[in-house]
Design a protein around this nucleic acid. Structure first.
Lengths: 151, 151
DNA sequence: TCATAAATAGAAATCATTTTCATTTAAAAT
DNA sequence: ATTTTAAATGAAAATGATTTCTATTTATGA
């Protein structure tokens, strides 16, 4: 098990390798995701950063999340209501996976269960399409929300 | 096989039954979907209506598409780039189905092939979620675009 | 320490969608 | 057929997520 400190070091190294400058805000953003372990919207991250920085713009958050996705430390997932979520993907490197979201608290989890390949050919035959990609979006109630009312 | 004329009559009847007034614009909107048989964005529909009506606002299209979905003559599907598509669903009444979209021309088709039930329990066990719904989103190249270059 | 390219703030732009409100209209009541 | 009235509409403005622009600031390599 890697410590949170080691994780931060690790992510910092990735920033350097990708020639991204190491700014306090970037460290705070990574920190946020490492600590929470959850998926969050740019707005969520912004709210968190405002506690620690007098000046912090929402565009900065958007820009950095986008860059972090590009270099592979965050994963971008389409969530509820046309909003995008970012998070550190738990599934190992690029392994095919899908997402499940909680309808109450909007929590987002990864899982690597999928049986799409069994269907692919049948769908191609029926629709005439040549299939390139697929996403399975699953919604339900997460463990926490099943117990405790709303959140 | 029902004629397009009969279809229009049928949809008109549904409007009446749902206490929606029969306006020329509503008829034109239904007409559009019956004729084209495709999924389209509110904007697409608006462009079409502008040819026949001097005054036609985009909000009117949005409002009507929303109502038509509510009473069941149209299906709303999330498509590419945060846009929603509406169309007359080919799959019979409320039968479980999914959607496939063309990455080139954004065409959208329904298909009723799905093997999610085989996975459900496994995902619930792994994530702790109680699953309520799922969507399979498939992307590829449609028959037309496979042949003829771009569109 | 300095030079410079990258990062940032703040404001404004975008773009799909929704709301508001005054006007028009379909259809129910007369 | 005419009146009544609730629903439908147009036009403008609001919304909300996201992006772009530009001037200023800052991390970092020389």
């Amino acid at each position: 098990m890697i410590s949170i400190y080691d994780k931060k070091v690790k992510y910092t190294r990735i920033l350097k390798r990708n020639k991204l400058k190491l700014t306090p805000k970037r460290i705070a953003i990574i920190d946020y995701f490492v600590k929470s372990g959850k998926y969050a919207t740019p707005f969520d991250v912004w709210i968190y950063l405002k506690k620690n920085f007098k000046k912090i713009g929402l565009p900065t958050v958007y820009r950095n999340l986008e860059k972090f996705e590009k270099i592979g430390i965050l994963t971008k997932v389409e969530g509820e209501e046309n909003r995008f979520y970012y998070g550190i993907c738990k599934i190992k490197k690029k392994k095919h996976h899908h997402h499940i979201t909680c309808s109450f608290c909007h929590k987002l989890l990864d899982f690597d269960i999928c049986n799409f390949e069994d269907l692919k050919e049948e769908i191609e035959k029926k629709t005439g399409f040549s299939i390139k990609e697929h996403y399975l979006i699953v919604k339900g109630i997460c463990k926490d929300c099943q117990k405790g009312g709303e959140i």
